[in-house]
């Protein structure tokens, strides 16, 4: 398999960028690109102390695989791709998502990695609840999914 997709319980096993880069490495690859999403301490003027990620895991993992397949159709079957998204409560600075793309040349690796994150953000059944320093919590307004109408 040249793709790895996963929803991971953050409490038991935090995400690891080195693991992602190792997976996409191959003797024929001259390029590996990496995207790491991290919980930040401020959103729309509100101080954030933590974020909880709710995930519909079976559909999310299936969607990750479909997005990886689309990337390989666009930039080559030899692309090696890694997708892992955290589930659970994360503190500021914790990693929420790790993506990596390995390919013979850099253009394909950069393009595929960018494609993965943009598609995942708008298509994957994942929801973010921010917990603020003032004790309040709120679900982040997101992107409405497209159906099969």
């Amino acid at each position: 398999m040249n793709t790895h997709v996963e929803v991971r319980e953050f409490d038991s096993n935090p995400l690891d960028a080195a693991e992602a880069l190792s997976f996409v490495d191959a003797a024929g690859n001259g390029a590996g690109s990496l995207f790491v999403g991290v919980v930040r301490n401020l959103n729309q003027g509100r101080k954030v102390r933590a974020v909880s990620y709710d995930v519909f895991a079976p559909l999310a993992e299936q969607g990750f695989a479909e997005i990886c397949s689309e990337a390989q159709q666009k930039w080559g079957d030899d692309l090696r791709l890694y997708v892992a998204h955290a589930k659970g409560r994360l503190q500021v600075g914790d990693i929420s998502i790790v993506l990596a793309a390995g390919s013979p040349h850099r253009a394909e690796a950069f393009a595929a990695c960018r494609y993965l994150i943009e598609e995942i953000k708008t298509r994957s059944p994942i929801w973010k609840q921010e917990h603020y320093m003032d004790g309040d919590s709120d679900w982040v307004k997101g992107h409405a999914l497209c159906g099969h109408d």
Binding site: F56, K121, T122
Partner: peptide
Amino acid sequence: QSSVLGEDAICSSGEVLAILPPVSGG
């Protein structure tokens, strides 16, 4: 458990579906 459904999809008794509000992953 495996696909987003259109409005015309038929439900079955006892079926387990999911409601998916707008998403905000990443």
